[in-house]
């Protein structure tokens, strides 16, 4: 009964809903489409008075030009090195701590969780000034290791939070069963916990990678020499007072800088849905 009445009124009721959905799609999509459109336009077209949505003579030249501009390749390489180093270090040092947080509850655990929350609330500016002074005394300003240290420190709380959740999802009974079978502590962790934890570790690794790849404020403060700047900094320097001629390559470079993050979100959405953990727990 309810199904039929609902079905009849649905047609009319749905019209405003579809209009609202369309409005959202337009709002969310139009800047993205404009970025794409700008990336495909020739410098000559950029200079024309009345810009159009669809490029009159679409070109991929901007993508090629972007590679030649302002050491973008160098900046992307440095960003890659920094992001790889900080994500691996973050996971390596936070994995044992996450394990401890998940398995031994108590005061330390509560302090750690408290710190995770506090680190989300505090204005970075309060930390970045003394941090800059400390790094300057350690001769780490204007160096990539300096930035790696900072990225590791500030990705750590959330990485810990993610990882301890994944560890908690691995039932302690599994470890106890392995221990009863005579497996040592190390063998229990390597043989039983690690395989189950792998998806969580991958997700955390990707999260840390993207945080570092996208990060701007710390890089701005720590890297002042153009020769060591990471991709976000170089992209910002791209926009000078030169007018519209270089907007095309800028748009192309921006699109390329987004690719790692898009891959991350594509992967993580599948990861979150995978029922690997559920299977392990039930079995």
């Amino acid at each position: 009964m309810t199904v039929t009445t609902r079905g009849r009124s649905a047609g009319l009721r749905r019209v405003p809903q579809y209009l609202a959905l369309l409005a959202y799609v337009v709002f969310l999509a139009f800047p993205l489409l404009w970025l794409l459109s700008t990336a495909l336009k020739t410098p000559r077209e950029m200079a024309l008075a009345d810009p159009t949505w669809i490029p009159r003579e679409p070109t991929l030249a901007n993508f090629a030009d972007a590679f030649g501009e302002q050491d973008l390749v160098g900046a992307a390489t440095r960003s890659l090195v920094v992001a790889l180093a900080s994500s691996v270090i973050t996971v390596v040092i936070s994995l044992p701590a996450a394990y401890a947080m998940a398995r031994y509850r108590g005061l330390v655990n509560r302090i750690a969780i408290g710190w995770v929350l506090v680190s989300q609330v505090f204005p970075f500016i309060l930390i970045i000034i003394p941090l800059f002074m400390i790094l300057r005394d350690m001769e780490l300003v204007n160096t990539l290791p300096g930035l790696v240290v900072v990225h590791v420190t500030f990705t750590l709380p959330f990485a810990l939070w993610m990882l301890q959740g994944y560890v908690r999802a691995v039932p302690a009974e599994l470890e106890e069963a392995a221990a009863m079978d005579g497996a040592g502590r190390i063998r229990t962790i390597v043989g039983v916990v690690a395989p189950l934890l792998a998806p969580g570790v991958v997700a955390t690794l990707l999260f840390a990678f993207i945080s570092s790849w996208n990060e701007f404020l710390f890089a701005l403060v720590i890297l002042q020499d153009p020769d060591v700047m990471t991709l976000p900094l170089t992209l910002v320097r791209f926009t000078g007072p030169e007018g519209v001629a270089r907007l095309g390559p800028l748009a192309a470079a921006s699109l390329m800088a987004t690719i790692p993050s898009l891959i991350f979100f594509a992967i993580i959405q599948r990861r979150l849905k995978s029922g690997l953990m559920a299977g392990a727990v039930k079995g």
Partner: peptide, 20 residues
């Protein structure tokens, strides 16, 4: 579409809107 802005570096979002 609702997730895409999340996946973009803030700097790129800023530059994109500057173009808009």
């Amino acid at each position: 579409l609702a997730v895409v802005p999340w996946a973009m570096p803030p700097v790129v979002i800023g530059l994109m809107w500057k173009l808009v």
